[in-house]
Amino acid sequence: MIDTAYLKQQAKFLRTETLKIHKAAPEVRVASSLSPIELFTALFYGGLLRYNPKDPRDENRDRLVISKGHGSICMYPLLADLGFFDKAELKRVCKSGSFLGGIPDPIIAGYETVNGSLGHGLGVACGMALALKTKNSNRKAVVLTGDGELNEGANWEAIMCAAQHKLDNLTLLVDYNKVSMLDFSKNIIDLNSLRAKFEAFNWQVYEIEDGHDVEAVYNTLKTALSDQQQQPKVVIAHTIKGKGVPFLETHPLSHILSVKEGDIDGLVEEINNAD
């Protein structure tokens, strides 16, 4: 059985560490980095993903493509904690000469693809999934996108391709936080029928009603990743952009907002004291 208390603790750790990085480097996109935390927690600390910090390109790893790279600053403390790089580097995020920038790239051990431009990860992951099948590898390709990112047409080319070629070793995680850059997503391009869309495209769909309930996230990801059906899988995780920072959680412009430096210590304490 998975230790839910441990996963909760690790999610708190990532959330508070992400806020601390934001305090020192306000340039990083904090709100969109707070919504996928439980997804990463379940994948890495829940043991759902195979990885090797000593050899980040180990042939035996699962391929995790983080397509919403800018919104994954929470990976920095996670990767450092797992030993992908020295923890001391976390103090240098966005400082001159640091490899930990505002938008992560594969210069960071643990990242597979170049980030910063949206809608690229899923198609590349399709190619990886196809390659793994051709090599008779049972390793998986897992992709994380946002929901605003799904406005990019290249995703839908990949979505059709993955189903056509039965890429059953491909799992897409949608961090469905419902806020894009300038407004709530529904006021820009409404994806409210996302499940129906994926079903129509012949994907196996899983949905997590509360993407911050780490036990539910773990259980659903585990089921999706072990699903043997000959289809690509998508896990739609309903999340909250800016989770853990009350004013961000409801703000349509949360993507571009920063948390005041003086507020961060209090927020960290609140998160640590919460259930």
Partner: peptide, 26 residues
């Protein structure tokens, strides 16, 4: 047939799928 794929009229995906294959050593 196991080393040929037609991705359809979709050049963006043509590039991305090709990149994924190439990263895996093909």
């Amino acid at each position: 047939s196991n080393r040929f794929i037609n991705v359809g009229i979709a050049e963006q995906n043509l590039i991305n799928v090709s990149v994924g294959l190439a990263l895996e050593g093909f």
